[in-house]
């Protein structure tokens, strides 16, 4: 929108309106945040009030549990999420580049099949996927879960974003390099991939969020014996602390901090990447 057309007065009113809307929208977040620092007695009696007295007991209790639930969950989820993002980015970018630059009947069919992957409820493929992983000898392992993440419905989304973004890149850009004798792979790596930054940020944000927040996939594919992920850990704690809101808010707060920081670090990059992600191919 134009940056000149507003008078100072209406600009202030607009900002106020925006702030009020966001405040109302964020009320549930406020509730979650203030109750992290309260004792249970105050949570029950004054759920909306500011903490008084302020306590960090809920956080300390969460971090010093005898079963190390949070630490194990944070470690496992960090490993799984990073590995998934690091692998899916080059895989999806390559497939997308192939689809966009080869442009023949095969790539069209491949893209269609890949896109349909977004519609499959993952619950449908869990049990047979375990059999496949068993066959490959990586059932119930971190590599098994990461490969399942990279190859599954997440890949469809990542390819969708990359294809859309690549279509907006001028074609002559890399054709010129081709004339210079570079191979397609070299062009992808040195010319195209650096230009894909917004799309890569989009993919990294969403795949990272989804992997971190995934409840059901790790329960099936990894199982409990390899240790719990952070989101299934919250679910476990919910059983134990279902009447101890302070503990639950504390654990959820701690479990959400890393992913919030991750989002804040990447957010500048990503909106433009998402938007060109509508596949016109």
């Amino acid at each position: 929108m134009s940056r000149t057309r507003e008078t100072t007065l209406s600009r202030r009113t607009r900002l106020l309106l925006a702030a009020i809307s966001v405040a109302a929208f964020s009320l549930p977040l406020y509730i979650a945040a203030v109750n992290v620092f309260k004792f249970n007695t105050q949570i029950t009696r004054q759920p909306l009030a500011l903490p008084s007295p302020v306590t960090t007991q809920n956080l300390v209790d969460g971090l010093t549990r005898s079963d190390n639930l949070l630490w194990i969950g944070l470690r496992n989820s960090t490993i799984i999420s990073i590995a998934t993002v690091v692998l899916i980015v080059p895989v999806a970018a390559t497939v997308a580049y192939w689809v966009v630059r080869r442009r023949n009947r095969i790539t069209k069919i491949a893209l269609m099949v890949l896109m349909s992957g977004m519609m499959i409820p993952p619950h449908v493929v869990f049990i047979p996927a375990v059999e496949v992983l068993e066959f490959l000898g990586i059932a119930r392992t971190f590599p098994g879960l990461v490969l399942f993440n990279v190859g599954g419905g997440f890949l469809s989304f990542a390819v969708f974003v990359y294809v859309g973004f690549m279509l907006t890149l001028p074609k002559n850009l890399d054709e010129a390099a081709l004339v210079d004798g570079a191979t397609r792979m070299q062009m992808l790596m040195y010319v195209v991939f650096p230009l894909l930054r917004p799309a890569t940020a989009t993919v990294a944000i969403f795949i990272g969020l989804w992997t971190w927040n995934d409840l059901v996939t790790p329960l099936f594919i990894l199982g409990p014996s390899q240790g719990i992920t952070i989101t299934s850990g919250i679910f476990v704690a919910l059983g134990q602390y279902n009447n101890d809101y302070g503990q639950m808010f504390g654990i959820m707060f701690l479990a959400s901090i890393p992913i919030l920081i991750y989002y804040l670090l990447l957010q500048k990059q990503f909106t433009s990447g998402l938007l060109s992600g509508s596949s016109k191919g």
Binding site: V113, I120, V132, L136, G151, G152, L155
Partner: peptide
């Protein structure tokens, strides 16, 4: 990439 997708989506499906 397509092989991964086939292994973990199409075959299980």
């Amino acid at each position: 990439g397509l092989l991964l997708f086939t292994t973990f989506v199409l075959i299980p499906l």
